[in-house]
């Protein structure tokens, strides 16, 4: 509960500081709309030539695009800004201030920066998802919705742990921003069903950069094509990655000497 309250505080501070730059809202809205428009137009072009893409119907891929935007929004909202700041503060030594605070430092670095306008992506994503669901109609039942919510949360944990693990590497190798950049460009591949890709890419997108679990799997859950094994596997992977990230974070902190010390 305390964690939620802390997140609330950080969120409020971000809102207050961002409200001074309200034009940014329209800039972000504009950019998100253009990005969404691009994605939808791309789908329209592809589906003008086919009515199934690797076994996925148009509205199912539409749902996937919705998930892609929701997760992308979550990453842009807290994960990416926080981890970027973490790497920066390990380099210049300002992590000292975070460590001096009487709360869990991992939590603090994870929520320290909130890019509130990225909420737009999340809202748009849910809008797209809702549209897709209405059009899919009869096939979405209670089980699908439930497993979707679970998979979305699982995906969020996976992606958070993955980013934290990468960012924690900065305790050993100071300049790691580049790895995070690679993630951003690879994430685009998650806009299409992972099953389209050839084996080696599917492997890389599942186990090396776990994007499959973040976009395709939740969309599969919603469209009722998720097997129990995948569901279980995703939950286990999330737990495993989270544990690894926690352990690495602890070991990494011991490595940290502080630039000012």
């Amino acid at each position: 509960m305390n964690y939620l309250r802390l997140f609330g505080v950080y969120f409020r501070v971000s809102v207050l500081s961002e409200l001074a730059y309200r034009v940014n809202f329209f800039v972000q809205l504009f950019q998100s709309l253009v990005e969404l428009g691009t994605a939808l137009l791309g789908l329209a072009v592809v589906f003008s030539y086919t009515n199934t893409l690797g076994g996925w119907r148009p509205d199912e891929v539409l749902a996937l695009v919705g998930v892609y935007f929701i997760v992308g929004g979550m990453i842009g909202l807290v994960i990416q800004p926080g981890m970027g700041k973490l790497i920066e503060s390990v380099r210049d030594g300002t992590l000292d201030f975070t460590l001096a605070k009487p709360e869990d430092a991992q939590l603090l670095v994870s929520i320290q920066r909130v890019e509130i306008w990225k909420l737009i992506d999340i809202v748009l994503g849910f809008g797209v998802l809702a549209t897709a669901l209405v059009r899919l109609g009869e096939t979405v039942g209670g089980w699908e919705v439930l497993s979707f919510v679970v998979m979305l949360l699982t995906g969020a944990v996976i992606i958070y742990s993955f980013w934290l693990i990468l960012a924690t590497l900065s305790f050993w190798f100071v300049r790691v921003e580049n790895i995070l950049e690679i993630f951003q460009s690879v994430y685009e591949a998650g806009r299409w069903p992972i099953s389209l890709y050839p084996g080696w890419m599917r492997f890389a997108l599942t186990f090396i950069i776990p994007i499959a679990f973040v976009t395709t799997v939740p969309a599969e859950a919603l469209t009722g094509r998720l097997s129990a094994e995948t569901l279980l596997g995703a939950v286990l992977l999330a737990a495993l990655l989270f544990a690894i990230s926690r352990v690495l974070w602890r070991i990494g902190l011991r490595q940290y000497s502080g630039a000012s010390a």
Binding site: V46, Y49, T50, T52, L53, G54, W192, L196, M201
Partner: peptide, 10 residues
């Protein structure tokens, strides 16, 4: 890959 899939299906 996307277009190859479409083409293969078609």
């Amino acid at each position: 890959i996307v277009w190859s899939t479409v083409s293969y299906t078609g």
